[in-house]
């Protein structure tokens, strides 16, 4: 089995990019991705991406935060170390609300951030893509399309990309 290689194509406009992607998909290439300095509207549909799990992660984490907040306060102040504080011992106490809420938000927020990191497999300071000097423009002002192909298909796909309007085509070097 020959290794997979990644071929990059730089496109001048979003329409050209999407057109190229659709053509490649039609010719059986599904391992596509776009690179752009800002999110491209409609890219999800073009790339046929599934719904993001991030909202579910956040929701679950918030729930855990809220439940643990209530349990923590009840157990600590009314069970484990029950003490008369200014004759205020109402269960459930409205005084639990702030901490409960904050814990919910804290867990939701951190789970989003670290969830994203997990989804992206970040941190990843090195990527073979970075070896392509021209690809740097992907975060500045250019639109790039990547397609993962078998090593023997590299030249045909490169030609295909050029034919679909790529201003530049680059081959990502193999990982050392």
């Amino acid at each position: 089995m020959s290794a997979e290689r990644v071929v990059l194509g730089k496109y001048p406009s979003v329409d050209a990019l999407y057109g190229a992607a659709r053509a490649l998909q039609a010719s059986g290439h599904s391992a596509l991705d776009f690179y752009s300095p800002y999110p491209l509207p409609g890219s999800d549909e073009v790339l046929k991406l599934r719904r993001s799990p991030v909202p579910f992660v956040a929701g679950a984490a918030a729930l855990v935060g809220v439940v643990s907040g209530v349990l923590m306060q009840w157990w600590m102040n009314d069970v484990d170390y029950a003490i008369n504080v200014a004759n205020r011992s109402v269960v459930p106490s409205p005084t639990w609300m702030p901490v409960t809420f904050e814990l919910g938000v804290l867990l939701a927020g951190t789970s989003i951030f670290f969830g994203l990191m997990a989804l992206f497999r970040f941190p990843r300071p090195y990527d073979p893509l970075f070896e392509v000097e021209a690809f740097r423009s992907a975060t500045i002002d250019a639109l790039w399309l990547s397609v993962a192909v078998k090593a023997e298909q590299v030249s045909t796909v490169s030609d295909e990309l050029r034919r679909l309007g790529a201003a530049e085509v680059e081959l990502v070097p193999e990982e050392a």
Partner: peptide
Amino acid sequence: HCETAPCEYVCPVNATVHSE
């Protein structure tokens, strides 16, 4: 020595509390 002491409920570390 207020029975519903205003000082007690505001202490974050339970350093002022009521005895039986």
